[in-house]
């Protein structure tokens, strides 16, 4: 039995917009394991991103329980969540979210400056194949290159978990593949637990497990017996 990294019980998240209540998550029970690459699949508004935000300590649950190993995230203060993110979590976002006024290297350094045991920014960039663009500003990079810098930034702290929210959502197929390739390598080479959100069903084939979301709940969980390399994925 692999080690459990995240464990959720009856996880509920409710948003209040205007007068109406929106149930983003309505009682999610899920376990995520160490060194596993999990794909969360589902249409917009099904609750994938909300779950990822709560797992990453970006948001609080309305009720229920979220455990990161022995740490109960639901009872942590903002300060403790900040600590948790800093020490354990790497994020990759759909729109890269690079700081436009910093170069590729400096964007990665934003993390290495504050992480306890980071790798060198150059090393992180090398891992995603961006060594030759190290001193370029985001505006001088293509979308795929920007996303790879974002991944380098996420892994530079040697996180235990890598949370990727639609990492290929803004990219075409061939650049998307490069990005997925980078994620898979991190997962395999460093043993980092990776959780990838997507609504692109083609991507599920590279995962160890696939969790399908529907209306704020888990519709199904499937384990892939045979995984394929990102380079074989086409969409």
């Amino acid at each position: 039995m692999p080690e459990t990294v995240f464990h959720t019980e009856k996880l509920v998240k409710t948003y209040r917009t205007g007068g109406a209540e929106v149930h983003a998550l309505s009682g999610v029970d899920l376990d995520l394991y160490a060194s596993e690459l999990t794909v969360l699949l589902g249409p917009s508004g099904s609750g994938k991103s909300t779950l990822l935000n709560i797992l990453g300590g970006l948001d609080h649950a309305t009720s229920g329980k979220v455990m990161f190993r022995d740490l109960d995230l639901t009872v942590q203060s903002d300060r403790a969540l900040t600590r948790f993110r800093r020490d354990h979590v790497g994020f990759v976002f759909q729109f890269y979210n690079l700081v436009p006024s910093l170069t590729a290297r400096e964007n990665v350094q934003m993390v290495t400056d504050i992480a306890p045991n980071p790798m060198r920014a150059e090393e992180a960039l090398e891992r995603v194949g961006m060594s030759d663009r190290i001193d370029h500003f985001p505006a001088e990079l293509s979308g795929g290159q920007q996303q790879r810098v974002a991944i380098a930034r996420a892994i530079a702290k040697r996180p235990e978990v890598l949370l990727c929210d639609e990492p290929t959502g803004a990219l075409d197929s061939s650049t998307g593949v490069q990005v997925l390739e980078a994620i898979r390598e991190i997962n395999e080479d460093l043993g980092t637990t990776a959780i990838v959100i997507t609504h692109n069903a083609a991507i599920q084939a590279m995962a160890h497990r696939v969790v399908r979301f529907q209306d704020g709940n888990i519709a199904s969980v499937a384990t892939n017996d045979t995984r394929i390399a990102p380079s074989e994925i086409v969409w």
């Binding site: 970006l58 903002d78 900040t82 800093r86 992480a115």
Partner: peptide, 16 residues
Amino acid sequence: RAEIGLLKALGYTDLH
């Protein structure tokens, strides 16, 4: 706003 959110996601404290 987005950059601030990012900094927070990366683990920068409120004080930072």
